[in-house]
């Protein structure tokens, strides 16, 4: 069973149905016991960083997330669920994140301040289908293969995923980078660290490639 953490943000039903489509049972829940006893845990999320942090706090779910990660349980962060893992975000002021992955969350910035009329080449939010470039699976530091290195199995390099976000993550440690994507800047579109895999895109909205990724995560939980 996979637990999808419900803290009142976003479309959780699609995540649940995505897992079910590929043969993995999933529940949407805000019950810490249920989350802690699941085989794998998903932290989804859309909306504003500080609201999400506040909702997690109000739901007394922050400790639960830390415990899941300490216990080494497979953990999937989606979109804001990726950003929340980081040290801090600059969305509407500086806000502290869960600090599980060292790094910052910053806004896409394509301002052309000198000419008001110049067409912005890149719209924000970054919304739509963009491709990912998979990173090397071997840690430069430890020489070990990340346990999530199989997460992209069966998903070719440059596959398209659906994105919708205005902020992106900058990890301090390059070793955690699982993929990058080009949108004016080459930004980190997914990361892995120990038992964590987290992506900026929405696998539950990315048709075949996305469902394959959910299947891979679910398979990993059953190991």
């Amino acid at each position: 069973m996979i637990a999808i953490i419900d803290y009142g943000m976003g479309n959780l039903r699609s995540v649940q149905k995505g897992f079910e489509r590929v043969g993995h049972e999933a529940v949407v829940t805000n019950n810490p016991q249920e989350i802690l006893s699941a085989d794998g845990v998903v932290l989804p999320g859309v909306g504003a960083f500080k609201d999400c942090m506040r909702n997690l706090e109000n739901g007394r779910l922050i400790d639960t997330v830390y415990k899941v990660i300490e216990n080494g349980k497979p953990f999937l962060g989606i979109c804001l669920g990726l950003q929340l893992l980081f040290t801090e975000s600059e969305e509407f002021g500086i806000h502290k994140g869960l600090d599980i992955v060292k790094g910052r969350v910053v806004k896409f910035s394509f301002n052309t301040p000198n000419s008001e009329l110049q067409t912005p080449n890149f719209k924000v939010p970054h919304m739509g289908w963009n491709s990912i470039k998979k990173s090397g699976q071997w840690s430069v530091v430890s020489g070990q293969k990340n346990q999530f290195s199989s997460i992209y199995e069966g998903i070719p390099d440059n596959s398209f995923f659906y994105f919708v976000h205005s902020y992106y993550v900058i990890p301090e440690d390059d070793d955690v980078i699982a993929s990058t994507t080009d949108y004016g800047v080459e930004f980190v579109s997914s990361i892995y660290k120990d038992n964590i895999f987290a992506c900026q895109f929405h696998p539950e909205k990315s048709q075949e490639a996305g469902l394959k990724l959910l299947k891979n995560f679910g398979d990993f939980c059953k190991c």
Partner: peptide
Amino acid sequence: VYRTAERVFMP
């Protein structure tokens, strides 16, 4: 919408 989300995995 409820039924669509069960079968369609795009925005």
